[in-house]
């Protein structure tokens, strides 16, 4: 076991994948000499060469489109999109090409791309640097979508994503890059929890709290705080956003009868809506209260001095928990309006 930051864990995972497979190439803006604006690829160009860690021109569609061509040639490109809000110029190539080529060619052409996207807010950034665009990608058939929440998963799942023959959009919670955690660098990928599976992070009995990426540590804090208040929360870290792993969710909700879903992304049409619908379909007769979403508002990501109002925090999540528990002092604003 070694203690690594989240960012170091991804770096170590990338390094291992590159060591094991010469077809793995990294592409992105400023990822070479600089090591990326978040230093996630620090030192990799020096060790693997400029032909495998490629500083690209500033054109996201160009990066994704050339990655598609490299995949045609048998490479496994790992693309870094510098910030969440910069992914949109590449959206056409991702949706129309990356996601569809395997289907279009009836399996003849695989697109084993990994698209790394630092995402989410909470770091006081200017516009376009704090977004949560994951629902665009979970709505796109042909993509797998991942969001990691801790250094161990970051280390393991980046390797699983690269090994996947399907394209993977890999969301990294940038405000957690400096979080430290124990990472087992010797662990075999074959024995790790598969990439498409969720994990019960904390077991509990009174209500289920499901989230992913940057809000997982917040949810763990919420479970601790709730326990002080006599409430036993079960926290589920989704890890995979496409596909959603309903098995542990269903088991949990059948046990607790209450569900809170939290994410930074805007509420309408978001993953919370999908999970609420999926759980209602599967667990209607077990539910003691309507599932509740605690999310960012339906607004463009706000200026940094306002972002704490937008981002679900410990208190808003606990308010949601109070609400599904039917506690009289729960703030009624959580309730759906007419």
């Amino acid at each position: 076991m070694s203690v690594l930051t989240f960012g170091q864990a991804i770096n170590a995972g990338l390094r291992k994948a590159m060591d094991q497979d010469p077809k793995v190439v990294l592409m992105g803006e400023d990822i070479g000499k600089l090591g990326g604006v978040f230093r996630i690829t620090d030192g990799l160009q020096k060790d693997f060469g400029a032909h495998r860690v490629i500083d690209t021109p500033l054109a996201e569609a160009g990066i994704l489109g050339t990655a598609v061509g490299l995949a045609y040639r048998g490479y496994r490109p790992v693309v870094e999109i510098q910030f969440d809000g910069f992914v949109y110029p590449a959206f056409d190539q991702i949706v129309c090409q990356v996601a569809k080529l395997h289907y279009r060619t009836r399996g003849a052409v695989s697109m084993p791309l990994t698209i790394r996207v630092p995402f989410g807010g909470g770091i006081g950034s200017p516009e376009h640097h704090s977004e949560s665009p994951e629902a665009y990608f979970t709505h796109t058939s042909g993509l797998r979508v991942i969001s990691v929440s801790n250094p161990q998963d970051a280390y393991t799942m980046i390797q699983q994503a690269i090994a996947s023959n399907d394209p993977v959009v890999f969301f990294e919670p940038k405000r957690r890059y400096h979080t430290k955690g124990e990472v087992d660098e010797e662990a075999e990928l074959s024995t790790a929890l598969p990439m498409g599976r969720a994990r019960v992070a904390v077991e509990g009995t009174d209500a289920t709290l499901v989230t992913y990426g940057p809000l997982v540590p917040t949810a763990l804090d919420a479970a601790t705080a709730a326990l002080d208040d006599g409430v036993s929360l079960e926290v589920i870290d989704l890890r995979s956003l496409s596909p959603l792993d309903y098995e542990p969710l269903v088991a949990s909700v059948r046990k607790t009868g209450r569900l809170v879903i939290a994410h930074e992304a805007a509420q309408s049409g978001g993953l919370g809506a999908e999970i609420a619908a999926g759980i209602t379909e599967r667990c209607f007769e077990y539910l003691e209260a309507p599932p509740i979403r605690v999310t960012g508002f339906d607004i463009p990501y706000p200026p940094s001095k306002l972002e704490t109002h937008h981002l679900p925090d410990l208190d808003r999540i606990l308010d949601g928990v109070d609400h599904v528990l039917g506690r009289p002092y729960a703030f009624r604003a959580q309730e759906a309006g007419a």
């Binding site: 032909h51 050339t66 061509g69 490299l70 045609y72 040639r73 490479y75 190539q93």
Partner: peptide, 16 residues
């Protein structure tokens, strides 16, 4: 869209 795919494929040829 295919012009980028051709360019990426050509990068692969070059790497090979």
């Amino acid at each position: 869209a295919q012009t980028l795919h051709a360019t990426g494929y050509a990068l692969g040829i070059q790497h090979d």
